[in-house]
Simulated scan of single mutants.
Amino acid sequence: MRIPVLLVSAFLSMPCAASVPQAPGADASPDAPIATLRLEPYRKSVAVRVEANGRQGLFSFDTAGGHTVISPEFAAHVGCTSWGRLGGYNMTGTRLDMARCDDVRFSVDGFPLAAPVVGVMQVAPLIAANAAPIDGLLALDVFAGRTITLDFAGGHLHVESPGSAAKRVAGAREMPVRLSREAQGLALAVNLEVPTPKGIVRFEIDSGNGGTLLVSKEYAAQFGLDPAKDGPQVARIPLGGGIVAEGLAFTPALNIDGNLGMPFLKDWVVTLDLAAGRMWLRRSDVPAPPGMGVPPVPAAAQ
């Protein structure tokens, strides 16, 4: 379970950007998406506006979150009585325990979504004091079995129909991935399989990581990085198919192989088939909003 990857990157600066205009809804064409939801800039990544039981909330959109998390306050407003426990570990090995709520239904831009189980925990401490408060973390679990396209720079999340999905991936580069279903199958994340001379390493696709690339210490040397260095290193990581992730990388001890955050994702339109476990990348046609995916300033430069 990767829920608060924000814990790992809490040291990053966190500018709060203005929201983008409402995305147009789907039309009746067989090649049109089922729905188009708005992704608005938030800190160095994106967020969505969620409504449940008449209550509106701002949720960080975290593709590595595993399962959706709501705050106790939001849970109370939507009539969720928490019970039991969800337990697991984030990618740095920190133990996480939280209460749960079942069958939580809500909508984003009028499109209905449902989470079989959500975690209930305080999410405000995961965000810097100068950022707008959030009410939860929206993860991929609510899109399980669907095909979605994430256009981070353009500010859209498309819920694809069969026709729109076929049109979307035409000319895009398919990349090998594996889905991970932790928390007894409740969580859902996507891991890109990256070739190295010694074998495959898997990088988690993580929109919740706003400013860095992460390579586990054990695999750092495979990408020309120094595993003993604590600070950021300039990295150039070949992902396969001629696609390269470039930016500042850290090499901490992780319980995953690596993590691709917004410094990479902001430049790509990402289509995920969350039923078949497939992913396509197409270079974004528009520049990312200011601040999105910007790496931290090295200490020596501050």
Rank of each mutant, 00 (worst) to 15 (best):
A249T: 12
L214Y: 11
V108K: 00
P227I: 03
E246P: 08
I70E: 07
P125M: 05
G93T: 11
P176W: 00
F106W: 04
C101L: 08
L265F: 08
D206E: 13
I200D: 04
V5Q: 10
A76L: 07
D226L: 10
Q233G: 08
F203P: 13
A235D: 05
Q22F: 04
I256K: 03
D97F: 01
G277D: 10
L188H: 02
P15C: 05
Y219F: 15
R282M: 14
N53S: 12
A17S: 14
E182T: 15
D102L: 10
V294M: 10
G25H: 07
L140W: 03
C101E: 05
M262K: 06
E73P: 05
L274G: 07
A221L: 11
A275I: 11
G208D: 07
A301H: 01
A220T: 06
L12V: 09
L192M: 14
G93N: 05
L150G: 08
A187G: 14
V286C: 08
S9D: 14
M292W: 03
C80M: 02
V78I: 15
A26G: 15
R85I: 14
A172K: 00
S19D: 15
D257R: 01
F143N: 14
V142Q: 10
F11V: 14
T63N: 07
G211W: 01
F143I: 10
A187D: 13
A189Q: 08
V120W: 06
V8L: 12
F61A: 14
V234E: 05
V5D: 13
K44S: 13
Q122T: 09
A99H: 06
G154I: 15
A132D: 10
K217H: 08
C80E: 04
I127T: 15
A153E: 03
E160P: 06
H158N: 11
D31C: 00
L186T: 11
E160K: 03
A299H: 09
V20Q: 06
S19R: 11
Y42L: 03
V142C: 09
P133N: 03
P176V: 02
R43D: 07
C101T: 04
K167Y: 01
A300M: 10
L192C: 11
L157D: 09
R49E: 12
L58I: 15
P289Q: 07
G79V: 04
I34W: 01
A235E: 00
R283P: 07
V104W: 06
R55G: 03
V108N: 06
G171P: 09
S9A: 13
L140N: 08
D230S: 11
T212Q: 13
P298V: 12
L213W: 01
F59H: 09
G110N: 01
E73I: 13
E51N: 15
L37P: 07
W268H: 12
D267H: 14
Q22Y: 00
N53Y: 00
A220S: 08
F61K: 06
A28F: 01
L248A: 12
L239R: 03
V5I: 14
Q22V: 15
A235N: 07
Q56Y: 01
V20D: 02
R181Q: 07
A32C: 03
P197V: 13
F11W: 08
M262S: 03
S107R: 11
D230A: 14
N209H: 02
L6S: 13
V297S: 06
G110R: 01
R168T: 15
G88L: 05
V5A: 14
S180F: 03
A26R: 02
D135Q: 12
M1H: 01
G247I: 14
D141T: 06
G291V: 06
R95F: 12
